[in-house]
Amino acid sequence: GGAAVVVRDALSLEEILRLYSQPINEEQAWAVCYQCCGSLRARLRRREPPAGRVESPADIRIWKDGAVTLGGWDANGRSPPGPAGKSEHSQCSETEVIESLGIIIYKALDYGLKENEERELSPPLEQLIDHMTNMIEADGSKDEGYEALDEGVEDENDKEDVEVIQSYRDVMKLCAAHLPTRSDAPRHYQAVCRALFAETMELYTFLARIK
């Protein structure tokens, strides 16, 4: 014994995939999409620079409290301190980030499968990923209205079905519509991500101990 087990506050999606050696399940995919878009919206609200594209599952962090962020941002989606910052980071449009997130989520669902094999996804999840990865660029005529952004996604417009994804909010609306009660989305998806972190951390700690 005696081996120190490092306490972690966040795990990357790549670490989770590797530790389990299997893909994420569908509920985790919905939850990671929702939570990630929630933190990206929060960044927009604070008028911080846009996030870059998601290049790999290592860019997605699942935090102890169920938050999900991209890159080096903290659990509140805030950029790391320091003048160096990431100002030179390539800036991407909201739709480009969503497309890259959709691709990485799909790959996490497909993890470990051979090239000629394909996982059969439930139609709503396949539709979500299809929407995320086949988007048209917003023409700018639709005002997102930063001041109207709030923590949840429930307002009158949320009763409408999303035909084309143009924003993080649209992704969140589709994820919320997947649940029997849309207003449960923030609490439910946070709980799914919190459980994903906790279960993976348990395995991580166990493996570290037996080493």
């Binding site: 299997q22 094999e117 394909e118 990923i129």
Partner: peptide
């Protein structure tokens, strides 16, 4: 617990996997 249950099918050239791998 932890074991995902999912079906695997042969990849179709028009399927989502094919579309995503082209991006």
């Amino acid at each position: 617990k932890g074991k995902s249950i999912y079906n695997i099918k042969q990849k179709h050239d028009s399927g989502i996997k094919a579309k995503i791998s082209m991006k």
